[in-house]
Amino acid sequence: MNADESGPREGFCAADLDALVGLPAHTELDEGALVFAEPRTGWHTTAVDLLVQALRAAAPAPYRIRREMTVTLGPRQRPEPDLMVVQAASIDNEQTTFFPQDVVLAVEVVSPESTERDRDRKPQLYAGAGIAHFWRVENNDGVPVVHTYELDPAGRSYGLTGIHHDRLSTARPYDLDIDLTEVKRL
């Protein structure tokens, strides 16, 4: 199937994303519709790199860090967080997506240009799917500010657990201490 086809009337299925040829990088699926990502800025990429390095360095044995992969939340729902902490046991090096039960943390790096979908809708989707932790990362004069959230399982919504400037120190999903100002040296 070619990416320039209009697609099925009812929309694409999560499995279709792997079969479509010629899609731009970071293409997501939202209620059966293809969503094409905005170009990444240098700051965005550097912030993701900083977090990936720090999360990998501190990750205990049952966890691994993945980026540029989707999470299949439903038959027509397959967003791509900027990075994820996943259960190591769920990893198959041929896979292109994870399932919500395998994801411990989803992270979205946003900017003033980010859409409502990235800021509001995707966190709601992650919470609704039962992903225990979510971080929203924003640019404050070149330094990441990390808003950390934890799932309230009764309400299937996230509660804010902290806003971290300059340093991210948290015990969830595991012990972390990240110098966020390091982004300026990368």
Rank of each mutant, 00 (worst) to 15 (best):
N93D: 11
S90V: 09
A57Y: 02
K184G: 03
P100G: 09
L23D: 06
P112N: 12
V35Y: 02
H44G: 08
V21G: 07
D49C: 02
T27Q: 00
A33I: 00
A57C: 09
V183F: 07
A37M: 01
K122Y: 03
T41K: 06
Q95K: 02
A89I: 05
P144K: 03
D30C: 03
G74E: 07
R119P: 03
T97A: 15
L20Y: 13
D102E: 15
R67W: 05
I91H: 01
R76V: 08
Q95P: 00
V104I: 14
R136S: 07
V86I: 15
Q53D: 15
I65F: 02
T72Y: 01
W135A: 11
P60V: 11
E28C: 07
E138R: 10
L168K: 04
R121S: 04
A127E: 06
E31Y: 05
Y158R: 01
V103D: 11
P153N: 14
P144S: 05
V52C: 15
L83I: 02
P60C: 15
P123T: 00
L105H: 10
I131W: 01
R167K: 13
S169I: 09
R66L: 06
E182K: 15
D49V: 03
E80N: 00
D16R: 12
V103M: 13
V21R: 15
R56L: 10
R117D: 05
D49A: 14
R172K: 07
W43G: 05
N2K: 12
Y158W: 08
R78H: 04
S90F: 08
V109A: 08
R76Q: 15
D120M: 07
L50E: 04
H133W: 05
H147P: 05
E182L: 14
L168A: 07
E5M: 13
D18Y: 02
Q77L: 13
G159M: 03
S169M: 09
I178P: 08
R121M: 03
R64V: 12
M84Q: 12
P153I: 06
Q95C: 01
R64M: 14
R67Q: 15
A47Y: 01
E38D: 14
T170S: 12
G155F: 02
P39V: 07
A3V: 11
I131A: 06
D16I: 02
G159N: 10
S114A: 11
D179A: 13
V137S: 02
L50Q: 02
D177N: 10
D102P: 03
T45Y: 00
M69R: 04
A57F: 03
Q87N: 08
P39F: 08
E150D: 07
D177I: 00
P81C: 08
D120E: 14
T70D: 05
K184V: 00
S114R: 10
T70V: 02
E68L: 04
G32K: 12
